[in-house]
Design a protein around this nucleic acid. Sequence first.
RNA 1: GGUCCGCUAGCUCAGCUGGAUAGAGCAACUGCCUUCUAAGCAGUAGGUCUUAGGUUCGAAUCCUAAGCGGAUCACCA
Length: 596
Amino acid sequence: MNIQENIIQGIQLAFQNIYNHDLPLDQIALAPTRKEFQGTYTFVVFPFLKISQVNPEATANQIGEYLKGNIPSVTGFNVVKGFLNLELNELVWVDLFQQIYSNPNFGQLPANGQKVMVEYSSPNTNKPLHLGHLRNNFLGFSVAEILKATGYEVIKSNLVNDRGIHICKSMVAYQHFGNGETPESSGLKGDHLAGKYYVIFDQEYKKQIKDLVSKGQSEDEAKKNAPLMLEAQDMLRKWESNDEAVVSLWRQMNDWVYAGFDATYKKMGVTFDKFYYESDTYLLGKDIVEEGLEKGIFFKKENGSVWVDLTEEGLDEKLVRRADGTSVYITQDLGTADLKYKDFKIDKSVYVVGNEQDYHFEVLFKIMRKLGRSYGDGLYHLSYGMVDLPTGKMKSREGTVVDADDLMQEMIETAEHHTKELGKIEGFSDEQARELYEILGLGALKFFLLKVDPKKRMLFNPQESIEFQGYTGPFIQYSHARIAAILRKADQIGVSYSAPDFTGISELTESEAALILLLNDYEKKIKLAAEELSPSVIAQYLFDLAKEYNRFYADVPIFHEKDLGIQTFRVALSSMTAKTIKKGMSLLGIAVPERM
RNA sequence: GGUCCGCUAGCUCAGCUGGAUAGAGCAACUGCCUUCUAAGCAGUAGGUCUUAGGUUCGAAUCCUAAGCGGAUCACCA
């Protein structure tokens, strides 16, 4: 039984009994009472004055009296203007906590029988991952975990962009300037090695353009005619015709890159259940073009190109096949969507892709719905904003990026620095200390990137390094470590809190009641985060929870409390908070330490 | 130009489905470590919620317009 629902039903009955009016349940809303006022929940009566036919104060008083008389958990109320503040019996909170505490599945909603695929990461294999990818990966992983917690079966997938002109650029540059360099010979991670040649390509390409321009070509001509570009295009054609030498170089460089990515993913703590490769999928979707033509959803223009008309939906006409019969980007995405369904029979599909592709996905989804795909209504684009630097946009080609590996390493070092400065590594082995720095450094980074609403673009200033105080990962991790210390002490002095009986607790302090109220909100927040595909909801919640616990910790004694029942209750409350923090942080992909 | 997104404290952000005196963190200032971890707690200060209209008992929130910033609109991916 839920207290809020109970009160809402009571309000419905109040309207029936006092005003002889049937008020639907979904029109009754309770809000948490603001801190300045007495009470727990507030019912706003303004919208119902036409029903009550009396002034706001009188309406609130009448309803308040009814609730006080008929709902046992409501012990009192006060009225401020049109706001009816309800005061609840503290035993209700103790009872509620008892239920939460004894529920082994708290925080994991029952299976809903639905399958969802979350596609994220989706890197290009011509360069290492950077800060933008970190936001993508952390978001994707976290959203997948959140969906699991709300009862979905989740498949995490990664569509690797391993072919195309950009890959050929790295390959061409490597052929010219590589001198047989390998990750082993250079000591470079494979993805960084490939990225190095991508940058070299761009530099040399620019030189060639400049050269051609000085010889009288226009900028545009020069861009087309630069020998390196011609070579890259030629290489792409050879790759597509399965040229042995090109394919073998492609394999070799991709293998290096994959080895590099594996290491980076491991450090990030993200995982995938299924990899798709564009080299396998780039020809998919041709049958869908035929299908669309047959169904009359697509149409042919005079030159033979195939289009879809989305003007009725407020979009433009969109090309789905070129006049020469070759595919465009969206064609393969149509095919891949079907492939995913064929592979897993998914009900929903979430694409974690930057907001510069908003239009692309809008078009893609509209087409799939027009084609009548069963999963059409379950397609979501989790569109996130770019991560900008103070110097502007990051560009891999120009080497102005914050590299993912470097940044993670820096964060770990910063964590080490802070920890040593605070003198908190006494009693840690080297191994344990290293583990702690990693937990803290990555925790700070992940929290920093996840606490903001995904759809907003965000600024990353490397000079002002990521904080370890306030609204941060380490703040929450610290709260967990604090509680862990409490629980160790409880075990040590023999407080048994695993299956306690709280019936003796008759009074709660403010911070105890507030903590229970917050703990009770956890599942509601998970649902909200899943609905909005927004880990920031969880981040915000965990911060509030940790903050409230720290308040409790400062206000209320635990082991100095003489009454053993109350002492046990407080230990249990601490334990439940720690469990919730740990679970919640794991939904963000963040580990919590036992000591720090 | 069309479409979409954003604009809230010096900075970074909550505040969505309209409710009370607009909230956090950082930075600044003041207290609190002989009591369970001070990466903490309590407090001070900081606001014309971009602007102008509208809707109503009530608007940061909904509607319209304008301003500023960004993205996107390829027979590129």
